[in-house]
């Protein structure tokens, strides 16, 4: 009996200010799509980080006849100097941190370079003499590259010690920045959505102020007066959340899996299972946001 009454009140409220309800649906739709995208972007960054960081190596570059940085003085590293570095890598102080290492001479470096820049004009300008000899080191824990740098940087014949992660960090910084931008926009939109829901509920309450006045007069409990409005807000916001969830799943399905994965087959991307994990989050955020802002909005009408 009372449930039917509450639901009929909800239906009445939704029908009475349809245009406001549509705007609530659209704003929650857009804002939660941003939220979902930001979450997936973070997931993507984490996934790529763990993939690439595990493969990132530390390069110990040796001096060439042309280099002037580090300990170099336009003198190529001698075989003794190279052996001294290897001895350091094998020493009890560094060995526990090192998983594996190998030496790359000028010829190998040249071949790798040619393979990497195949078809690029720069490939034809490079000769083996220009390439740098290096030790490529895989660390047990990729975050500890500083130890290696501190130990080897000052040695004679060492030009530089470079952690490849520093190149990756730039890429991740860009991706992070874009994900924070998405979160920022999402936050702004969520504020707009919350205010819009509150306004919609106030309007709805205003258009029913006669009923509300009589309800209060005859002793309807606050919960009874409140519930239809809260449900009204939650229904509108949930519609928007469902649309947003659909949009996020569609983006992953058609753009990420359908387009990006085809174009960049070596990279692993977020999949449908990640998208489906985001869906309940979006529905939850939408419903909670609406419930809280509708509750706050209607409280003004309940003061006795």
């Amino acid at each position: 009996m009372r449930l039917a009454l509450v639901l009929s009140e909800v239906g009445q409220g939704l029908r009475r200010n349809l245009s406001m309800v549509v705007s609530v649906v659209l704003v929650t739709f857009i804002s939660l799509t941003f939220v979902g995208t930001a979450i997936l972007l973070q997931a993507q960054i984490t996934q790529m980080k763990s993939y690439w960081y595990d493969r990132a190596q530390v390069a110990v570059y040796f001096c060439t006849d042309f280099s002037t940085v580090g300990t170099c003085d336009q003198q190529a590293a001698t075989p003794e100097q190279i052996a001294a570095v290897e001895a350091q890598l094998e020493s009890p102080t560094l060995a526990p941190f090192i998983d594996a290492y190998y030496f790359e001479d000028k010829q190998q470096a040249f071949e790798n370079f040619q393979a990497q820049f195949e078809g690029n004009a720069i490939a034809s300008l490079v000769t083996p003499e220009l390439m740098t000899e290096a030790y490529w080191v895989n660390l047990v824990d990729p975050t500890q590259s500083q130890i290696l740098a501190d130990a080897l940087r000052g040695l004679a014949g060492v030009e530089s010690v470079v952690d490849q992660r520093s190149y990756l960090d730039q890429i991740f910084d860009i991706l992070n920045a874009s994900s924070f931008t998405a979160i920022g926009i999402a936050a702004l939109m969520l504020v707009a959505a919350a205010l819009l829901i509150a306004t919609t509920i106030r309007l709805s309450a205003f258009s029913r102020r006669r009923e509300l006045g009589i309800m209060r007069l005859v002793g309807a409990s606050n919960r009874f007066i409140q519930t239809p409005f809260v449900i009204e807000g939650v229904v509108a916001a949930l519609l928007g959340s469902i649309l947003a969830a659909g949009a996020v799943v569609a983006i992953v399905q058609f753009f990420v899996q359908g387009y990006l994965s085809e174009t960049l087959p070596q990279t692993s991307f977020v999949g449908l299972d990640d998208a489906l994990l985001v869906v309940p989050v979006l529905l939850g955020v939408g419903a909670l946001l609406a419930a809280v802002s509708a509750n706050v909005a209607i409280t003004r009408y309940l003061r006795v």
């Binding site: 009996m1 009923e211 009589i214 002793g219 309807a220 009874f224």
Partner: peptide, 11 residues
Amino acid sequence: AFTLQVIGKSK
């Protein structure tokens, strides 16, 4: 009837 409905009386 509205008065009675909102205070939860039975049909």
